[in-house]
Design a protein around this nucleic acid. Structure first.
Lengths: 169, 169
DNA sequence: TATTGTTATACTCTATAACTATA
DNA sequence: TATAGTTATAGAGTATAACAATA
């Protein structure tokens, strides 16, 4: 049995395909910014000024905090961000954009927006807006700041903690 | 400068976040099927009966043909697919579902659809439909069967071929 | 005892190269 | 000469473990 017009109807396939194209197109439009599309997201998050510490940034991107060390090493070496000690908590570091980082972020954002719109070219303009809005809403609902997701994260951490303890015996 | 309500407005972030959640949720709902969400897509593509050979399947999923060997090895070992020589081209193999594979595919599809709808729970029902339709359309436009993408693929292959020749000197 | 950040290590995933058989 | 499929190898990316400093 085949589908009506041979059209693919798998959400997983569509997401994977779009994601792949997005990473390629975004990567090209961002030039050599350290970390590629992910590096850009770090800059953008820092630019929004709400996620000051490295763990917060890591959680926002859904990656391990060790990744953030490497990413920020590269961004700092490129002169785009600065790490300064947090006066309120001497374990933590406040991550901020340099002047150059702010300029670069604006350029990258502009370039990326153009690339994105081109990528979404198969959709009408109002559809692009609707798609973006729905994806934002979905992602917000899935992000670790969401209570439901927080519960899951906690569960995973607990499980990991238990595994860790078992190994240590 | 921060955005109005602190709401994330990055398409890359939204896509990455949704993709991550999708892979987790789909992976769980698919149980231990070889290859996880990707293995399911292989079964589904074979089930549609249009992509008989391994290269065609690989291209459909946007992976290297060597990946398909590994994936099909696992699916075959699990008794879900069969590889038979292609009578028209003795280099190629026709990949088909076994009876068990067909049954399993139906079960997986059902389970996955439920998980997907739950994942899209933040959207209204008509929005889910609209989102799916737009993602399908986008992915179709980006898929390698699309003329524009074929040109790009060809370009990449040519470049790879040139690199390969240079190395051989 | 838990958390932030770092480093070193190990693992997973995927692509590349090289090969055989066929076109 | 090019392609389908396989195998072996190498690389990128990522997570895990362990550590120091601080809470």
């Amino acid at each position: 049995m085949t589908t009506a017009a041979g059209v693919e109807r798998e959400l997983g396939w569509a997401l994977t395909t779009v994601m792949k194209s997005y990473l390629r197109v975004a990567g090209e439009s961002l030039g050599g910014v350290p970390g590629g599309p992910r590096g850009y997201l770090v800059l953008a998050a820092i630019g929004r000024g709400e996620l000051g510490t490295q763990v917060a940034l890591a959680q926002h991107l859904g990656v391990d905090r060790t990744m953030m060390t490497y990413l920020l090493d590269d961004l700092e070496e490129a002169g785009l961000v600065e790490r300064r000690p947090d006066p309120a908590d001497r374990r933590a570091r406040r991550v901020t954009l340099t002047a150059g980082g702010l300029t670069r972020l604006a350029e990258l954002r502009c370039s990326l927006r153009l690339a994105e719109e081109s990528l979404l070219g198969a959709l009408a303009e109002e559809e692009r807006t609707a798609l973006r809005e729905m994806l934002y809403r979905l992602a917000e609902a899935m992000a670790p700041s969401n209570p439901c997701e927080l519960a899951r994260e906690l569960e995973e951490q607990t499980a990991a903690s238990v595994r860790s303890r078992r190994r240590r015996r």
